[in-house]
Structure formats: C-alpha cells, structure tokens
Computed example of a mutant assay.
Amino acid sequence: MNGQSSAPLASNGITPLQQMVASCSGAIITSLVVTPLDVVKIRLQAQKNPFPKGKCFVYCNGLMDHICVCENGNSRAWYKAPGHFAGTLDAFVKIVRVEGITALWSGLPPTLVMAVPATVLYFTCYDQLRASLSVKMGDYAQMAPLFAGAHPTVGAATVVSPVELIRTKLQAQKQSYRELTSCIRSAVQSEGWQSLWRGLGPTLLRDVPFSAMYWYNYEICKRRLCEHYHTREPTFAISFASGALSGSIAAVLTLPFDVVKTRRQVELGEQHTKNSSAEVSSSTLSVMRRIVAQDGFTGLFAGFLPRLIKIAPACAIMISSYEFGKAFFRKYNQEKVLRPLHATNTS
C-alpha cells in the first residue's frame, strides 16, 4: 500500500490531492451548469426593475454568492440585455440569439477565481474531518457529518469575506490597486481590522447551519439508498438524489438568514459605492426587524422558489460529481496496487 502513490491514502482510499482534484472538477461542472440560471434570473430582475448606477445585486454561480455593482451607461454589461423577455425560456432563447450562447456564462471567470479554491478547501476539509470524528466519536459516529460540515464553513467564509469586500470596492470605483490599498489601510486605521469582515455574521448564520444540516441529511439519505439498492458505494444517481433532497431541506430551513445576508451584502456594497461610512444596519437582528416591518413576516422567506430551484441542482451536481471523482480515483489506486501483483502472477 505504501508504494502505490507518492502521498498516503486517507481512510476512503484516495489521497488529499485526489480529493482536491475531485472537488475542483465538481466545482467547475456545477458552475458551468448553474450559472446560466442565475444570469437569466438577474436579466429578468433588471428588466422589471432597472438597476440604477451604484445599485448592487447578488450573483451566484452555483457555489458562492457574489456582490455586483451596476455601472450605468455600459451597454456591454452582462446584466443588461436588449429586448423584452416574456419569461425564463424566452430569456434563454433571446439572449442566445442576440448575444451568443457564451453570454449565458457572463461573469463566470472572476467568480471561479474565488469560488473554486474555497470549494476545494471546504470539501477536502470536510472529508478529512468527518473521517477523524467518526473514529473518535465511536457510538455517536452518525453525528460526525453534522460537526464536520459546520467547521470548514467557518474557515472558508472567513477567508473569502475580505476578498469579497475588496472586489466590491473595485467594481464600485475605477481605481488602481495602489489607491485600493490606501483606501483599505485608511479603513483599517479608523475602524480596525474587523472592518474587512463586515457582513460575516449573517453569512455564518446562514452557511454554518446550512452545511451542518446538508451533510447530516446527505449521509443519512445516501446510506439508506445504498441499503435499499444493496450497494456498498453510492452510484451517481444515489449521490445526485441525496444531494438534491438534503440541499432542498437545508435551503428552506436557512432561508431567513439568506434573506438577511443578501440584504446586508447589498447595503454594504452600496455604502462603498457612495463612499459612505454610515452604518445602514448594525446587526442581523436589526435587519430582520426592518424586513418584518417593511414586508411582514413572509418577507423573511422572500425568494423561496428561486433559491430552491438554484440550490437543489447545485448541491446535486456538486456532490454527485465529487463522489464520482472520488470513486474514479479509488478505483485507479486499487488497480495501481493490483497491477504489479497481476504482472507477477502472469510472468
């Protein structure tokens, strides 16, 4: 076993590097499939309520949310489209016909630069942590996915948060990196380093319980489906179905925090666009109160159907691609061990 690869195999039969490759492939596939859905959604939103200059909106490539700032007058901006869209299907057809099929993946490259590394780190850490906790927790090993799913989320969200803030500033104002560095240094001197992590609170309140519930439900669904179909390893279909179901459950239960997080992101982005240091809202609770006052309790569940339509396939595609990648490398490693033995027996 020690001679089969340059890196030691984990308990699941693959190396950490192979886990990273599997998750990276899954992240790219997920982005390629889900991005067109969000591009069409934003085009429809922009048509119904045109974005004025400096207006912020949230764009998601299936893996992460990203803040975008509208630049008025730029006819080539991907969120502005000619013509009138009668609906989702009509938008797909007209965008492809007028701008070409590549327009459906507008804004994908810069988001992949942030999303793929964070996703690779997250999935690799989850697998390693779950394997370790399963051994240490003994009789309570079934709870390992709950804790293993929550912890990597904190690290990934914390690392990405300042980068997202910097990207928003670059979008909002045409400035050099030297000017940006000066701006960030000034903000840190006046408000402290914590100013780079504005909006992290509602992000963690949404993402940590989402990840915990997602992985816990996913492992249960996967195990039961494997037992039902009498298979030791999950097939692509089993992983896909388990990912879609567990993602849907987690998405519904964490929707209020997603609404708060989106509102907070947009408000912060518009603050930076206007060079305003005034706090629009000071806490997650205050944002919730304001949403309820403006739109009622149902306002906390705004965007229920779009979120479900986006999250379910994204989770399904990501996890099934990841599991397929792991199965491929596991088989490759096993064949690599057996190949010398087979050659010896036949010689």
Rank of each mutant, 00 (worst) to 15 (best):
L205T: 01
K136W: 13
L9D: 08
E71L: 07
P209S: 06
D207H: 11
V98I: 14
V40L: 15
S23I: 03
G62N: 02
C315F: 06
V69M: 04
Q18S: 05
G13A: 01
T235C: 01
K48F: 11
M213A: 06
L196N: 07
A46Q: 15
R223W: 07
T203F: 04
T111L: 11
Q45G: 09
G247T: 06
S186H: 13
P340I: 00
H84G: 04
K80N: 14
Q142R: 10
T102G: 05
R290P: 03
S195A: 11
L146P: 04
S25H: 03
A77F: 12
T158W: 14
P52G: 08
T284P: 00
G299K: 03
A22L: 08
S286D: 15
V287L: 04
H84F: 11
R330V: 01
L108D: 07
L129K: 06
L200P: 07
H151P: 01
L44V: 01
Q18K: 06
V160Y: 05
T119P: 04
L37A: 09
R223E: 15
K41A: 13
Y140C: 07
L133S: 09
T231V: 15
S186Q: 14
C24L: 13
L9E: 09
L338Y: 11
E164A: 05
P234S: 03
G299C: 06
V266I: 15
L204T: 02
V58Q: 14
P256W: 05
Y218G: 01
I42A: 09
A91W: 01
F123R: 00
V135A: 02
Q175V: 10
Q171D: 06
K80R: 15
Y59T: 00
F236T: 01
A118E: 02
F57D: 00
T30K: 00
H272R: 10
P36N: 01
F210N: 06
H151F: 09
D90V: 07
S195W: 07
L129Y: 10
K261S: 15
I29G: 03
K261H: 12
C68N: 13
R263C: 12
V160R: 06
Y122W: 06
Q294Y: 08
M114Y: 15
P162M: 03
